[in-house]
Design a protein around this nucleic acid. Structure first.
Length: 584
RNA sequence: GGCUUCGUGGCUUAACUGGAUAAAGCAUCUGACUACGAAUCAGAAGAUUGCAGGUUCGAAUCCUGCCGAGGUCACCA
């Protein structure tokens, strides 16, 4: 596969050199895809050459265009609009490109580069079920992992399970008081929902108790939770046993949700096992003068020169804080996995925390500090406003998943297009459609942006949606099924490339670059929107042109083109964790 | 208050990272199924890109100042 961009850029440099004696760096050449309303596929912006050439942009465009047309066999024509030089590529190159890749279902994926990257995402607390916010986190983390893998990296997916702390003890206390020894199995509900129920109950009790107390007094149940935490830390067997039992309920619930979302992890870290790590680095940092000790014994770092203020890294009683843990955990991971890149998928309310963490690691001089990245994403709001767990306005992950699949069922009933299939096959297809609607709805938005989750729009299956793209894929599959008895491997002497075909090919051609770009900018939404654009272009092509009932060479080519589109759509959506059905 | 992120048609999002006439979807109107599947396609209407300056061949994008909405500034995680 030819690297056209590279060829053109080098040609441009050679051109301005021979025409205007200008030394221009290849990387600096401003080359873009040509806008639809103009003839051509690539556009060179010639404004940067005006100074050296001392000529009008239009003249430079003409001269450079002529140079390129004469010197590059790939370029067959050009036109100049203002300061923009539009280049037309030899159509045969596009046709050959399709012939080259149409059977390659791995097209777009890079060769392994041997580099390791660890992606941390999800990282739930074990006192309540997952909600909509986790879903965005999980989908981003998963997509980021898949994209890095496709970009050639060796990816390790991990999560830190926050299985320890006062919040867990609160659920435990409530269960001790009101649980009567019940288990999730007694009520046939998921373990995480079961435990979450007690967390809610705890908060009710605390609120009731507080109502009868004076300002500043602590509710008795909170005192109990605290003492439970102390017992836990002292390794009290009974407390530990209850803790283990309740956590195990939660884990089985999480496992189910992860399975429904199609997500797995390669390795897990439990906070209960890592929260004491990091202290050795505090001592080391003190020795090296990176940290300083206050009179009361607490340890701090001065980050004023990085505009980050002073930050506590160890309490006066010698115990760890959040930051201490993260320092230790990062180091442990590096020792375990040896990954020089670490991506933390965490909400943007923790931007400051990660800035500080990365700055500390840099000052500690760890070898991987440059590879640490906080994939920060915006909160998910509801049309009614912020989600607040205390006010019961959270959208539960399991409910949401069930709802979108139900919506897919409703839609299918109206259409009745897969009614002749077996029930379990139908269910499988509708599961894919429902999840595609949900996942795409979330993934199409740039992660950095705060987003509004409108439940009605999230189950939409028309327009800029996951099912719309699935439908394009299903059309490809449908055509290929019909073509199965034909022999379309041969004659592709097709010459007369139509605009809709060229559009599809040029899009596919950019796919490998897009994966790299998406990885570098940690942005799965680029892939999502590409898939939409490609699906849209295929729908249009499909509508404008016949595929099967045309001359043989045309038919053969269009089938190969369709097959290529199918592969790219499948790969692209796969990177987002969205599965494609064969029919729908 | 300090630091920080954001503000694009009625709504939800794009814009190849400073490029051409700001691009799509939803909602609203008009058309297209005896067709390789209409979860589709074609078209209409809808925008002074929060406001005001500046930088330059060129600004939604960069700089400054306002206005508005978040986040964060814990010996919580």
């Amino acid at each position: 596969m030819k690297d056209l961009q590279d060829i053109i850029k080098k040609g441009v440099c050679k051109g301005v050199n021979s025409l205007y004696e200008l030394e221009f760096e290849v990387d600096k050449v401003n080359l873009a895809a040509t806008r639809k309303d103009f003839e051509g596929e690539y556009t060179v912006v010639v404004f940067p050459f005006t100074k050296a050439a001392k000529k009008k942009p239009e003249v430079i465009g003409e001269e450079l265009g002529n140079f390129l047309k004469e010197n590059l066999e790939e370029i067959v024509d050009f036109n100049v609009v203002k300061g923009f030089l539009n280049l037309s590529i030899d159509p045969q190159i596009w046709i050959d490109f399709v012939k080259e890749i149409h059977q390659n279902d791995k097209f777009g994926r890079a060769e392994s580069n041997g580099k390791k990257v660890m992606v941390e995402f999800s990282s739930p607390n074990t006192n309540k079920p997952l909600h909509l916010g986790h879903i965005r986190n999980i989908l981003l983390g998963w997509a980021c992992s898949e994209i890095y893998s496709a970009a050639g990296y060796d990816v390790v997916k991990t999560q830190v399970i926050n299985d320890r702390g006062i919040h867990i003890c609160k659920s435990m206390v409530a269960w001790l008081h009101t649980g009567n020894g019940e288990t999730p199995a007694d009520h046939d509900i998921k373990g995480d929902h079961f435990v979450g129920k007690y967390y809610v109950k705890y908060n009710q009790i605390e609120k009731e108790q507080k109502a009868g107390l004076k300002e500043g007094e602590e509710a008795p149940i909170l005192t109990e939770a605290r003492s439970l935490l102390q017992k836990w830390e002292a390794n009290d067997p009974e407390t530990r046993k209850l803790w283990e039992t309740m956590n195990s309920w939660v884990y089985s619930g999480f496992d189910q949700t992860y399975e429904d979302l199609g997500v797995t992890f390669d390795t897990l870290y439990y906070e209960s096992q890592t929260y004491l790590l990091g202290k050795t680095y505090i001592d080391q940092g003190l020795k090296d003068g990176i940290f300083y000790k206050k009179e009361d014994g607490s340890v701090w770092i001065d980050l004023e020169d990085a505009k980050l203020d002073h930050k506590l890294v160890q309490r006066s009683d010698g115990t760890s804080v959040y930051m201490t843990q993260d320092i230790g955990t990062a180091q442990k991971r590096y020792e375990d996995l040896g990954s020089e890149k670490m991506v933390y998928v965490v909400g943007d309310e923790q931007n400051y925390h990660f800035k500080v963490l990365f700055e500390i690691m840099k000052r500690l001089g760890v070898p991987y500090s440059e590879g640490m990245y906080h994939l920060s994403y915006g909160m998910v709001d509801l049309p009614s406003g912020k989600m607040k767990s205390r006010e019961g306005t959270v959208v539960d992950a399991d409910d949401l998943i069930a709802e979108v699949i139900q919506e897919a069922h409703n839609g299918a009933k109206e259409r009745g297009s897969i009614g002749e299939l077996e029930q379990d096959q139908q269910d499988e297809i509708l599961r894919k459609i429902g999840l595609a609607a949900l996942k795409f709805f979330i993934m199409k938005v740039n992660p950095k942006k705060r987003m509004v989750f409108n439940p009605k729009e999230s189950v939409d299956m028309q327009g800029h949606t996951g099912p719309y793209i699935q439908n394009a894929y299903v059309r490809v599959k449908s055509v290929l099924r019909k073509a199965a008895e034909m022999d379309w491997a041969g004659d592709t002497s097709y010459k007369d490339l139509k605009p809709e075909e060229k559009e599809l090919i040029t899009m596919i051609y950019t796919f490998p670059d897009l994966i790299q770009h998406s990885a570098k900018s940690y942005d799965p939404s680029m892939i999502a929107n590409f898939c939409y654009d490609l699906g849209k272009a295929y729908h249009k092509f499909y509508h404008e042109h016949q595929i099967l009932k045309v001359e043989e060479n045309t038919r053969n080519f269009r089938l190969k083109l369709s097959e290529s589109v199918g592969h790219v759509l499948n790969t692209g959506m796969g990177l987002l964790g969205i599965e494609m059905p064969e029919r729908m």
